[in-house]
Amino acid sequence: MSDQALRVALDYYAAWTGHDLDKAMTFVADGIVCEAPAGRLEGAAAYREFMAPFVSMLVRAELFGGYGDDEHALVAYDTETRLVASAPAAEYVTVRDGRIIHSRFIFDRLPFVRARS
């Protein structure tokens, strides 16, 4: 067993938290399926559209930890954005052939709702 999925997940995390969405998308499969609090997204274009606004308002990110094996990885972190000071989240991803094919985002949308109202 190796940690290939964890390496991909961490490289992806480093890219988008470094405001390089183009690089981050190189770790995402064309047919990605993403399950997030806002609903299910299918395809790389929809995934990019989902991530772009968040990446553009990101101020900083702090990695809590990452765990994984050949096929799955879990990355947990906290983010600060222009809207909220703290937005902890986790992503559980499935990786095949060096790309993320499935992502499950877990985060609380309430701080963002409150900040926008």
Results as ranks from 00 to 15, higher is better:
residue 89 A to R: 03
residue 15 A to Y: 00
residue 98 G to F: 07
residue 85 A to W: 06
residue 91 E to H: 11
residue 28 V to Y: 03
residue 86 S to W: 06
residue 33 V to K: 08
residue 113 V to I: 15
residue 108 D to M: 06
residue 38 A to E: 14
residue 110 L to W: 14
residue 42 E to S: 13
residue 21 L to Q: 05
residue 46 A to H: 03
residue 93 V to F: 06
residue 57 M to P: 01
residue 107 F to R: 11
residue 85 A to Q: 15
residue 66 G to A: 09
residue 35 E to C: 07
residue 22 D to Q: 10
residue 93 V to N: 01
residue 75 V to S: 00
residue 41 L to M: 09
residue 38 A to W: 11
residue 82 R to D: 13
residue 18 G to C: 02
residue 17 T to E: 01
residue 106 I to G: 13
residue 88 P to R: 06
residue 61 A to Q: 06
residue 97 D to G: 13
residue 101 I to H: 09
residue 3 D to W: 07
residue 30 D to P: 08
residue 20 D to S: 05
residue 33 V to A: 08
residue 102 H to G: 13
residue 109 R to F: 10
residue 19 H to F: 08
residue 102 H to P: 03
residue 34 C to T: 15
residue 67 Y to I: 13
residue 70 D to Q: 11
residue 52 A to K: 10
residue 104 R to I: 10
residue 38 A to C: 09
residue 43 G to E: 00
residue 8 V to R: 02
residue 25 M to T: 08
residue 109 R to W: 06
residue 26 T to F: 07
residue 73 A to H: 02
residue 38 A to Q: 13
residue 41 L to N: 00
residue 52 A to I: 01
residue 35 E to D: 13
residue 78 D to G: 14
residue 102 H to R: 15
residue 27 F to T: 01
residue 27 F to M: 04
residue 87 A to K: 11
residue 63 L to M: 08
residue 70 D to H: 08
residue 46 A to D: 09
residue 54 F to K: 04
residue 38 A to H: 09
residue 104 R to W: 06
residue 94 T to A: 13
residue 28 V to T: 09
residue 83 L to V: 05
residue 67 Y to H: 09
residue 104 R to P: 00
residue 28 V to C: 02
residue 17 T to C: 05
residue 21 L to E: 04
residue 67 Y to L: 12
residue 58 L to T: 05
residue 4 Q to D: 14
residue 29 A to D: 14
residue 36 A to V: 07
residue 53 P to V: 05
residue 51 M to Q: 12
residue 102 H to K: 15
residue 37 P to A: 04
residue 103 S to E: 13
residue 89 A to H: 07
residue 80 E to P: 02
residue 11 D to P: 04
residue 31 G to R: 11
residue 55 V to A: 08
residue 7 R to K: 15
residue 42 E to F: 06
residue 48 R to F: 08
residue 65 G to F: 00
residue 66 G to V: 05
residue 29 A to C: 08
residue 82 R to E: 14
residue 39 G to W: 01
residue 44 A to L: 07
residue 31 G to S: 13
residue 9 A to T: 02
residue 101 I to L: 11
residue 99 R to V: 15
residue 32 I to V: 15
residue 108 D to V: 07
residue 12 Y to K: 00
residue 15 A to W: 00
residue 90 A to K: 03
residue 12 Y to L: 03
residue 72 H to Y: 13
residue 10 L to M: 12
residue 50 F to S: 02
residue 112 F to N: 03
residue 30 D to I: 07
residue 14 A to P: 04
residue 40 R to L: 12
residue 51 M to V: 06
residue 52 A to G: 02
residue 53 P to I: 05
residue 96 R to Q: 14
residue 105 F to M: 12
residue 71 E to M: 10
residue 104 R to E: 11
residue 39 G to R: 04
residue 97 D to A: 14
